[in-house]
Design a protein around this nucleic acid. Structure first.
Lengths: 140, 140
DNA sequence: TGTAACTGTGGACCACACTCCACAGTCAAG
DNA sequence: CTTGACTGTGGAGTGTGGTCCACAGTTACA
């Protein structure tokens, strides 16, 4: 498909698609069309790539980082071990983020709880969740 | 404590601290010092606030969003129900992010697995994890 | 009382991630 | 072969999240 359809499908603007292509985040091929400025053609695989970009981004990765990882992944396909290495590193980062998220969730839940109970006891303190520290009154 | 100590403690630069203060992310009080341009003084509570800012940010929230939530939380403290409302909304967002993260983790893990096994079977496809869809060969 | 270390202010500057625009080439349908 | 929809290019502009700097006022210590 050409850029407009692709943009519609992914919810990106054409400009953003071109921007991502310039950054190497998307690798459109060309059909014969377009003459001196060949038209970009995208596949369903690219649509999925955008899903991944979006999620990676919402997890706080920069486009450059995402591009680098994609790049490495592409190269890593050649050397299997390198591929595993790169992906493992990525997994570690994801797990770290997951831990942070769980901290935040616990904290927010505790705060909701505290409010629901009519502010009884000590106001939840982020530190207790942040450093996995021992909490005061609410521990068994 | 004054801004330099606070900066040292949080690992932010003085400029960033001031920047955050301008955005309303931090709410330093003043001691009598500084004359016409009163000095900012920060507390341990502000240090914890920075922890939360950092994590929220790394989870993809903008400073404006974080400030708004802080703001609402502050106001919500007056009306308990409103506070619960705001925090619940925040929790929903955090849970959505957690789901995304889990998707990514499953995907990356599957990819590592696939490589470790010497690329046997079908190459893992992000779609299967993204939409919680049924997978082909690797399901029981 | 001097001086070094601290403070806030205002403004310029930066990278990132877009977004918009004018322009010109290309394609496809009639 | 015209016409309208589509395409890429280059460049300028925007908002966010800082960072840097010169400047001037304030403080604390000797």
């Amino acid at each position: 498909m050409q850029i407009s359809d692709f943009a519609r499908l992914t919810g990106l603007t054409r400009d953003t698609v071109r921007f991502y292509s310039r950054l190497g985040l998307l690798r459109p091929r060309t059909n014969g069309k377009g003459g001196r400025h060949p038209y970009s053609v995208f596949t369903d695989k690219d649509v999925r790539a955008v899903d991944i970009i979006r999620i990676s981004q919402s997890l706080g990765m920069s486009l450059k980082e995402i591009a680098t990882l994609n790049e490495e992944r592409r190269e890593g396909h050649l050397t299997c071990e390198r591929g595993i290495e790169v992906l493992s590193a990525q997994l570690v980062r994801l797990e770290a983020k997951a831990t942070e998220l769980e901290m935040m969730k616990s904290y927010v839940r505790a705060k909701i709880d505290w409010l629901t109970r009519g502010k009884q006891g000590q106001q939840p303190d982020f530190e207790s969740y942040a450093r996995g520290g021992s909490c005061g009154s609410s521990c068994f």
